[in-house]
Design a protein around this nucleic acid. Structure first.
Length: 209
DNA sequence: CTTCAGATTATCT
DNA sequence: GATAATCTGAAGT
């Protein structure tokens, strides 16, 4: 891998990292955003440290979706889901926090897993572990990733590899919708609880080029 | 004010 | 595969 000539700030921006995602990237249906998020790089600055992962698994929560936190309208918890596209929606579940990127019209994309070459394979695998590794905390809820500088999303110049589409996990309602997206080559970094039982074959067949 | 379920994870059998 | 951990937002009384 080629190294930047100058040290310090320019040391981020490895090969293949493209421009920051603008508002228009997020202002689309969550299912499209979720798919296009695969391969993008999420960068989080905490003090002097910078951590980043390549996004390898996402899950879309859409309108009229019983599983979506926004299903019953705007509340104190989910208000960020109704903010500008590109806003972070961070919520707590049990003892962890999970992060979403807001798409359009009250839709959002849950970041389920990331990979990083310099780190053990599973540290950012799973919504809670991903946030823990990157240092995303509840105070980041409502942050705008388009105009802000603590959390940035960088798109890839090259198209990511084949994408698996599968059922959502960890939810009871409307799980059987093709709204979970993974990078096919990153299976190892994917779920703690992947596809189960007889549904497997049905879902494994669904691949987007 | 009380109850309750949850977009999870670590750990056990 | 099953369960405990652990706590908050939201709904119910």
């Amino acid at each position: 891998m080629r190294r930047s000539a100058t040290a310090g700030r320019s040391s981020r921006s490895p090969d293949g990292i493209g421009p920051r995602a603008g508002r228009a990237f997020f202002d689309r249906p969550a299912s499209r955003v979720a798919r296009d998020l695969l391969g993008a790089v999420l960068v989080v600055r905490s003090g002097r440290s910078v951590r980043s992962v390549r996004i390898v698994e996402t899950e879309a929560y859409v309108r009229k979706d019983p599983a979506s936190h926004a299903f019953r309208g705007r509340t104190l918890r989910n208000r960020s889901m109704f903010s500008r596209p590109g806003t972070l929606y961070v919520y707590r579940i049990h003892q962890v926090v999970c992060a979403n990127l807001v798409a359009h019209l009250g839709e959002a994309v849950l970041l389920r897993a990331g990979s990083s070459a310099s780190v053990p394979p599973r540290v950012a695998s799973g919504p809670g572990r991903l946030c823990r590794y990157l240092g995303i905390v509840r105070e980041d809820d409502g942050m705008d990733t388009v105009s802000g500088h603590r959390v940035e999303l960088h798109l890839r110049t090259k198209r990511a590899g084949p994408v698996h589409v599968g059922p959502r996990v960890g939810i009871r309602k409307a799980a059987d919708r093709p709204l979970r997206f993974t990078l096919a080559k990153e299976k190892a970094v994917s779920l703690p609880r992947p596809l189960g039982g007889r549904a497997s074959r049905q879902w494994r067949a669904r691949v987007n080029p």
